[in-house]
Simulated assay, not measured.
Amino acid sequence: MPRLRSLLAALALTLPGAVVVTAATTAPAHADECYSWTRNLSSGASGADVAELQVRVAGWAGYGVNMGIDGSYGPQTVAAVRNFQSAHGLGPDGVAGPATYAKIYALQDADCTPAHFSYAEVDGGCGAGGYSGGSVPAAQVKENLKRAMWRAEALRQRMGNVPLTVTSGFRSQACDRQVGGSGTGQHTYGNAIDLVGASFCSLAQNARSNGFGGIYGPGYPGHDDHVHVDIRAGRSWSAPTCGI
């Protein structure tokens, strides 16, 4: 959409009698319709813009690190930005500036979801759709799902951009009970997604380095045909077949 606006503006300048729409000059320059950073960020910075950055790089904080989204640019955020930069061919200085933002813009859609995952594939299960009836309000469910999807995007990149498919995302409490859950599990918060599309053991093993507090895979009851990952605080990993 931003590229289309720019093209139309340029075309208008070349046509006799054309009216130039000045709003086009203020359109986003990149795929940043959902959020634009206006300053460089580095160690010691704080604010809502740091939190937005953390959402997008939390999957790169390191092995076993489930980074909090707290708006404070501390050592974990520095490490996450460095690893993100390295993974995408940028100089790993740990400072978020134009090149880092450009890569983030290229990776995200206008609704702030990452390029290879969408709300459509993680919304309510059991045929219900939507984000209501969970353990937190619908707005928080969607925010949690966005955070989980960005970590899944990092996992996908780590695995060589192998396509991954979500088989289950948010579940209402009623849906969670219907499929045999407790009714209050991580899926009811929007924290969890179930993945297929690659070796399950490879998924589970790599997920340990992409910011997931919960990982359940082959060898854990009911998880031989997918890998469950979630963004809970703390750590609960179990995929015995895979040595986890």
Results as ranks from 00 to 15, higher is better:
residue 10 A to H: 12
residue 17 G to R: 08
residue 18 A to V: 08
residue 18 A to H: 02
residue 22 T to S: 03
residue 23 A to E: 14
residue 28 P to G: 13
residue 35 Y to L: 09
residue 39 R to P: 01
residue 39 R to L: 02
residue 40 N to D: 08
residue 41 L to E: 02
residue 41 L to W: 01
residue 44 G to R: 02
residue 45 A to C: 09
residue 52 E to W: 11
residue 53 L to H: 10
residue 55 V to Q: 14
residue 56 R to K: 15
residue 57 V to M: 02
residue 70 D to T: 13
residue 71 G to I: 09
residue 73 Y to I: 15
residue 80 A to D: 12
residue 89 G to T: 09
residue 93 D to H: 08
residue 94 G to F: 10
residue 99 A to E: 11
residue 101 Y to V: 01
residue 102 A to S: 07
residue 103 K to R: 15
residue 110 A to R: 08
residue 112 C to T: 14
residue 113 T to A: 09
residue 114 P to K: 08
residue 116 H to S: 11
residue 125 G to K: 00
residue 130 G to K: 02
residue 132 S to E: 14
residue 133 G to A: 13
residue 148 A to I: 07
residue 150 W to L: 13
residue 152 A to P: 05
residue 159 M to Y: 04
residue 162 V to D: 07
residue 162 V to M: 03
residue 168 S to L: 04
residue 170 F to P: 01
residue 172 S to T: 14
residue 174 A to F: 09
residue 180 G to K: 11
residue 181 G to M: 07
residue 183 G to C: 10
residue 185 G to M: 06
residue 185 G to I: 04
residue 187 H to L: 09
residue 198 A to P: 01
residue 200 F to T: 03
residue 205 Q to A: 05
residue 210 N to G: 05
residue 210 N to E: 14
residue 218 P to K: 01
residue 220 Y to R: 00
residue 222 G to A: 07
residue 224 D to S: 05
residue 224 D to Q: 00
residue 227 V to M: 03
residue 228 H to K: 07
residue 231 I to A: 07
residue 235 R to A: 14
residue 237 W to L: 08
residue 240 P to F: 04
residue 241 T to I: 03
residue 241 T to N: 12
residue 243 G to D: 09
